[in-house]
Simulated assay, not measured.
Amino acid sequence: MAARDYYFDNVKFVLIALVVTGHLIEPLGTEPFLRPLYLFIYAFHIPLFVLISGYFCKNLSSGEYTNKVISRLVVPYVIFETLYSLFDYYVLGEQTLKFSYFTPYWLMWFLFSMILWKVALPYAVKIRYALPISIMVAILAGYANDAQYYASVSRTLVFFPFFLAGYYLKREHISRLRTPLIRCIAVIIVLTAAVAMILYGNGLEEKWFYGSVPYEAMGHPEWSAGLYRAAVYTGAVLLGGAVLVLVPENRIPLITAGGRNTLYVYLLHGFIIKLLAKASGFYALFRYPALQLLLPVAGILLTVLLSGGGLRHLFKGLVEPRLNRLFKKPLSNRSQSRTMSR
């Protein structure tokens, strides 16, 4: 068995911590002190998470590929889409009980789009120049006013180029970039992006980073609006690449182990954040900038808590259900079993 690559566990922990932190500070995302951080996170963390997800989709010819899509994505999606609807109604006091399996609930869009990306990937990689074509389709999708939240159409198209790029990405590509010179450049990129968000963040529309609405909905009906999406892509590639270069490769207590359980963190943290947002006066406690500093810290601590082995054991039946009996054995395995029984 090949030794586990701690590097990707570290990357995944950093990204899921950014997801949790971004969602935790979102209700205060317009506050002058938190807005630069919010924009900085959203400028790259979704594209980079999608890229890493695509990186781990190499075995397209495996007989288990479709089974894993169903057992690790489709079934957990249905379970948690249902649970979030029930949570809204019975815990948060929503007026109606609404199940919206084809309009994913808040954070559930990622699993829905992941299903579509994985289904499309074996066909997409057979197309010549698939990556540039997917980029063109994503840019053109912004001109379609009906490509929005239903079936996660907009986000699926907008972020698919990163998923496809992740499939083509190889470990040696990253290793070649981890030189002292490029690390220095990466630090400059991160610092430049942070300063830019501080100085110019107030005039930036965060919906450009969501990938969920057309250009016209963001006040850009002009024919050249696609250039803005191209600029957003460029920024995500530069900033995401800088993060990949800077994340350490060695094993780090809590972080490396936590990076193995990112799906648990992703699916569970929404319940806590929704509850906090509904709780009377919780965000009122963070009126002052000094106190707002505690929210990113709380995001990291919540990530560590939810990525622990205890919660994985507790919720494994929901997040990673065992569905072996649901699938037929491959024909070759069945033939082998008959031969051995003779």
Rank of each mutant, 00 (worst) to 15 (best):
L305F: 14
P132V: 03
F87C: 08
S62C: 08
P76D: 07
F271R: 03
G29Q: 10
F80A: 05
L326S: 03
T21M: 12
I273C: 03
A165H: 00
M114V: 03
Y143N: 06
K98Y: 13
A130Q: 10
V319E: 01
M114D: 12
P180T: 14
I133C: 10
M108E: 14
R178F: 07
R72N: 14
I127D: 08
G142S: 05
G241I: 01
G281E: 08
F159H: 02
W223A: 11
F56Y: 03
R128L: 09
E206A: 06
F49S: 13
L37W: 08
Y215S: 07
A165L: 04
P180Y: 07
V158R: 09
F327T: 04
I79L: 14
L293W: 11
S307E: 06
F315K: 06
S335T: 03
L15P: 05
F56V: 01
P132F: 02
R35M: 12
V190R: 05
V75F: 10
Y6H: 14
T234P: 01
I255M: 03
T192A: 15
A124L: 15
L227M: 12
Y7A: 08
L227W: 13
G299E: 11
T156C: 10
L157C: 12
Y283R: 12
G258Q: 11
V125H: 04
I198H: 07
N67F: 02
K98V: 15
L15T: 11
L97N: 10
R35G: 08
L34R: 09
L294R: 01
S332L: 12
I252A: 00
G309H: 05
A141Q: 08
A120R: 03
I272V: 15
T21R: 08
F282Y: 13
S332M: 04
S100D: 09
Y143H: 15
R229M: 03
R342V: 12
I115D: 09
L311G: 07
A120V: 13
I115W: 07
K68P: 01
L295N: 12
